[in-house]
């Protein structure tokens, strides 16, 4: 008979040292806390800059907890981070950063006085959007270091992380541009008549409305991203799916592979459903003045 608990432990944490597992658990717990805090910020209409500082702060904290080292924490090898935690953390590290990057790039695309800069950025992100994620993962892990600097060592985790950020960013830019179109043309005119333009207009008038308009599409892209993190298995990172295959290759577990696939499927369903529910809460709380 096999030990279900140790199997689930392996699916979730992989080869992460037992003594340090509390760090991963803490990092994972921060994710829903961050989600709740975001709803709280939206509900109380805190400034976007506060949300930005909160997001970046929590990202750094989870990074430090899971793979950081130093005086307080024992050093952990990057490859030891695996399992479902790797999927969740990769999604968590890429989603907010990709969204912030996309918001910044949209400002350039909408307001750029130099058309060539906007054109080059548009072309670059079109290229990323039109290539399969797997191709990009391979390219960034294997080919990019060869092209630029062979001595530059990008770990597979870092390569996957950067790829996911840019891939998600390419989609988010299009969602934001669509949301910008949804802002009524009279709003732009009245901003101009009030003498508000450039970054100030983008920050105070466009961006808050773009975020609101784009929520449904953003959330479904985020859910797609959570599922896409399983593709990092292709470049040799042991994510939950990789660990599952290792698990069912063992004699003790090999007859139960359907059950384990169901368990993993259930965990993904739960994560994605919670993300969707969070999106609904955000939509509800940002409906200012509408009952």
């Amino acid at each position: 008979m096999f030990d279900l608990l140790s199997a689930l432990d392996f699916l979730s944490f992989g080869f992460y040292p037992d003594i340090d597992k509390w760090r991963l658990v803490l990092a994972i717990v921060i994710i829903p806390m961050h989600a709740v805090l975001t709803v709280f910020c939206v509900k109380n209409r805190y400034r976007l800059s506060y949300c930005l500082v909160l997001t970046l702060g929590l990202q750094m904290l989870t990074l430090w907890l899971s793979i950081g080292d130093g005086a307080i924490l024992r050093s952990v090898k990057l490859d030891e981070l695996s399992g479902l935690c790797l999927n969740l953390l990769l999604a968590y590290w890429s989603i907010p950063l990709a969204t912030i990057l996309a918001a910044g790039i949209c400002f350039i695309l909408i307001n750029a006085s130099s058309k060539s800069l906007a054109y080059i950025l548009g072309l670059f992100f079109d290229l990323i959007r039109s290539l399969p994620l797997v191709t990009l993962l391979f390219f960034n892990t294997l080919i990019l270091p060869m092209l630029f600097n062979p001595k530059l060592i990008i770990t597979r985790l870092e390569a996957a992380w950067i790829t996911l950020i840019f891939f998600l960013c390419a989609y988010t830019i299009q969602i934001f541009l669509g949301a910008y179109e949804a802002i009524s043309y009279h709003q732009h005119e009245s901003a101009k008549a009030l003498g508000i333009s450039g970054w100030k207009k983008y920050r105070h008038i466009d961006l808050p409305q773009m975020l609101k308009h784009s929520l449904p599409a953003l959330i479904s892209t985020y859910i797609g991203m959570i599922k896409d993190t399983t593709l990092v298995m292709i470049i040799g990172l042991a994510d939950s799916l990789g660990n599952l295959q290792l698990l069912i290759s063992r004699n003790a577990y090999k007859h139960y592979y359907i059950e384990f696939f169901f368990i993993l499927g259930f965990l993904f369903w739960l994560t994605c459903t919670l993300c969707g529910w969070w999106g609904k809460q955000l939509e509800r709380t940002s409906n200012y003045g509408k009952t």
Partner: peptide, 14 residues
């Protein structure tokens, strides 16, 4: 120096 009032108000909804 110029203020303008629009037909459809154009207040910022957020």
């Amino acid at each position: 120096k110029i203020g303008m009032v629009f037909q459809d108000y154009a207040l910022f909804p957020h």
